[in-house]
Each structure stands twice: as structure tokens, then as C-alpha cells.
């Protein structure tokens, strides 16, 4: 059982890494800051490639989230109990998935949303992403402290 949970966290980890990387690549920063000059990372400056990557990992992420939820509902495993940290994570994930899905709809032909709504989606998506990153750092520090204190 323990091993399976590890595979799941491993998949979450890989997905987070690539989804964040390809997400940041949507802003024109990797070329400016020489990151795409590093041999083998040239693709980070190709907006179309990173856009596709972001979509693919978003799909995998949603699959993983649905799997975790189904597990929780059916087997009552995965989440031991709904802790405060868990609730924060659920809010952030829901925000990311909702804003991201609406942005995917926006990218189809036509103008389904007003420009104000598009701007709000762009900003909210990046805010949820920053919240997740900060929360991740907070959890790391917390875990380290717990380990140190025994």
C-alpha cells in the first residue's frame, strides 16, 4: 500500500514540475534570462511546444486529481482526514482547474468571454499557481521542523 502511495506522489511531483515549468514558459522570460540557451532547453522558448506541454500535463493532473477523489470517496484512502492544509490544497487545485479549463475554452475559435473576464482568468490562474508554490514551500518547512523536533 505504502509503495502505491509513493508512486502516486511521484506522479504528482513529475506533473507539478512540468506543469509549472511549461506554465512559466508562457511568459516571455526563459529567452530573456538565458534559460533556453542552456543546451537541451531551447524548446523552453518555443511557445507552441510549451503550450502543448502545459495542456498535456494539465490533462494528466486532472486525471490524478479525479483518481485521488474517487479513491477518497470509494475506498476512504489517500486522505486520512480533511486537515486544514488539505482544504487549502483543495481550494487551490479547484481554482487552478477551473480557471485553466475556462482558458482552454477561450483558446478555441471565437470570443466566448469578454476581455475583462480573460484578464481576470489570466491573473487568477497565475495567483493560484503562486499560492500553490508558496504553500508547497510552507509545507516543506513545516515538515522539516517536525522532523527536527522529533
Amino acid at each position: 500500500m505504502k509503495k502505491k502511495i509513493n508512486i502516486q506522489s511521484c506522479l504528482y511531483g513529475i506533473t507539478f514540475f512540468f506543469i509549472t515549468l511549461s506554465g512559466f514558459a508562457q511568459m516571455p522570460i526563459f529567452k530573456r534570462y538565458y534559460i533556453s540557451d542552456i543546451p537541451g532547453l531551447g524548446w523552453l522558448a518555443d511557445f507552441y511546444i510549451t503550450h502543448l506541454m502545459h495542456y498535456m500535463f494539465a490533462g494528466i493532473f486532472m486525471g490524478l486529481v479525479v483518481y485521488s477523489i474517487s479513491n477518497f470517496i470509494v475506498l476512504k484512502t489517500g486522505f486520512i482526514q480533511l486537515t486544514r492544509d488539505m482544504i487549502i490544497k483543495i481550494v487551490i487545485f479547484s481554482g487552478l482547474i477551473l480557471t485553466g479549463s475556462l482558458m482552454v475554452i477561450k483558446n478555441f475559435s471565437g470570443t466566448p468571454f469578454s476581455n475583462g473576464m480573460v484578464i481576470a482568468l489570466d491573473i487568477l490562474h497565475i495567483l493560484f499557481c503562486m499560492a500553490l508554490l508558496f504553500f508547497g514551500v510552507y509545507q516543506l518547512i513545516k515538515r522539516k521542523k517536525e522532523l527536527l523536533s522529533g
Binding site: Y48, L52, Y55, G59, V66, S68
Partner: peptide, 30 residues
């Protein structure tokens, strides 16, 4: 230029179903 992303987006609709299927498989095994 926008077609490949949009095609992937359509294909990705299957991802949540795959998540449910994987959980169902696990439930069945258990």
C-alpha cells in the same frame, strides 16, 4: 497554429475518465 493545442484539449477530456477508471480498477481489486 492554434489547432494542435485545441485538438489536445479535446483529447484530454478523457483524462478524468481515466482517473475514474483507475480508481474503479483499484476498488475492484480490493
Amino acid at each position: 497554429k492554434m489547432a494542435s493545442g485545441n485538438n489536445i484539449a479535446k483529447a484530454m477530456l478523457i483524462a478524468p475518465l481515466a482517473g475514474i477508471a483507475a480508481a474503479a480498477g483499484k476498488f475492484y481489486k480490493a
